[in-house]
């Protein structure tokens, strides 16, 4: 058991923190929602009613989509884009998809390689892109969920202000949708750029995301 916890600590701790913070968001969001309810002369809603509402849904989904977009872009673009001195970059002589030998696929695989890396053909092509594909699909799904929950939450506000609701088609062109979308995208892109650049000159001893403390600033593709 201790060994399992130790060997899976990153996933377990971040997964656990995610749930705690999500519940915290739900309580804070419920308080905001009920303030608006009272201001409109309507009764408070229950915790369960709120966490199944469009308002909670859009607040969750708009953050999810941007996180998965960040990972999708980071995974895909770092195939080709390099950053001298950054542990987030591959070494400068390896831009692109690299050779089958370097990637240990097909006849270059070894006995411990995943089956789909060994078999070749479409299975290996899919497996070779599976991380980006899944991140991209989750991004698109979350963004779609944001638009569906967003139009319902937006229309709830519209009706509370005695205004007409919008269709989904109108909403995805409306400022509210793009304001929610772009404010999340900009922060994710800033975080990636900051991490890639700051990690050239700064160190965090023992972190997998940092170069060893004594590594030179120009050392690229080295992680602690």
């Amino acid at each position: 058991m201790r060994r399992f916890l130790r060997n899976n600590a990153i996933g377990l701790v971040f997964g656990g923190l995610f749930l705690v913070v999500l519940v915290g968001q739900a309580f804070a969001g419920l308080a905001v929602f009920n303030e608006a309810q009272r201001a409109s002369g309507l009764p408070d809603v229950s915790f369960w009613r709120y966490v199944t509402s469009a308002s909670f849904g859009v607040d969750v989904a708009e953050n999810w989509q941007s996180e998965y977009l960040q990972f999708f872009l980071f995974i895909l673009l770092t195939v080709w884009l390099l950053q001298k001195g950054s542990p987030e970059s591959k070494s400068l002589d390896k831009p692109g998809r690299e050779t089958d030998e370097e990637q240990k696929i097909g006849r270059f695989s070894d006995e411990r390689s995943p089956k789909w890396a060994r078999t070749g053909g479409w299975r290996t092509r899919i497996f070779s892109n599976s991380l980006g594909l899944v991140m991209g699909l989750i991004f698109l799904g979350s963004w779609l969920a944001q638009s569906v929950a967003g139009v319902a939450a937006f229309n709830e506000e519209q009706l509370s202000e005695r205004q007409d609701p919008l269709s989904w088609g109108q909403y995805v062109l409306a400022p509210d949708f793009w304001n929610r979308t772009l404010q999340n995208w900009q922060s994710e892109l800033l975080a990636v750029a900051s991490m890639a650049i700051l990690a050239i000159y700064l160190r965090q001893r023992g972190s997998s995301q940092s170069k060893p403390v004594g590594s030179p600033h120009e050392a690229t593709g080295v992680e602690g």
Binding site: L42, A152, N155, L159, S160
Partner: peptide
């Protein structure tokens, strides 16, 4: 008729009515 969360809008021939959800 449009229903979104705690609010509803009912458009009739010559009137529009806004309703709120209560227990």
């Amino acid at each position: 008729t449009s229903v979104y969360g705690q609010w509803a809008q009912v458009k009739l021939d010559d009137d529009t009515v806004f309703l709120g959800a209560f227990p």
